[in-house]
Amino acid sequence: MQVSAPALALERITVTFVSPVGASATARFTAVKDATLMVRPGEFVSVVGPTGCGKSTLLNIAAGLLEPSAGEVRVFGERLAGLNRNAGYLFQTEALLPWRTALGNVTAGLEFRGVARAEAGRRAEAWLQRVGLRGHGHRYPHQLSGGMRKRVALAQTLILDPQIILMDEPFSALDIQTRQLMENELLELWSVDRKSVVFITHDLEEAISLSDRVVVFSAGPASHPIGEFEIDLPRPRDVAEIRLSPRFVELHTKIWQAMKQEVLKGYEQQKSQ
């Protein structure tokens, strides 16, 4: 492992989906074209862009769940083949195993890796406590609220101590209050041992308040990065308060200028479909 190597490097990634239409014809759809994204160790990077711009596709590439049509993924300097074992993935939709209790979900990763059950249980209890779910370990996902399920998912991923955390609009289904609470908790958990984070969102305010850097993607198809912005807001931050600071507003205005055209383009495309 080189010291200077980025934690995650997506180099000139192109993703083209092929789907059969009829007997001989195929439809091609290029979701991402020539996208390059670097994430330094310990850096919190947000990717923003209009809905349907292939942000999730990019994250699946980084996770190794999807193979790029062209381009290369490097993880700490090494070429990625197969699943990204250094990454944890927080999904947008429900991803917990519904037949396992909250505790069982948190221990799942450890069990898959062969950690003894008692040891896994002990560590999972500690993690449930860290995400504020002490005493809820025996509940099944359907017995928990949306926010609680996200916390379980967070503990499930973080217990494995991934060097890179990939998040796909993890809080988009939550109400605004719960969401801000979760964002603060995420920042707190992250600040303990700064892992690299790629955070996908369509919410610019969320992106700015959480990140070290915000990358703006163009509207799809053939989505690619069109701008990068360093966020020099001081840490630790409170996501609710920082939105009121003048520097935040300044950054927001600047990034929004870059994004606006793309959002409108994306909106028009969705309308015409």
Binding site: N60, A63, L65, L83, R85, A87, G88, Y89, F91, T93, E94, A95, L96, L97, P98, A108, G109, F112, R113, Q156, T157, L160
Partner: peptide, 15 residues
């Protein structure tokens, strides 16, 4: 089986 659940289990290291 939900694709997300499956992908999640894979990412958690399930063979």
């Amino acid at each position: 089986v939900s694709h997300t659940v499956l992908a999640n289990a894979r990412m958690l290291g399930a063979g």
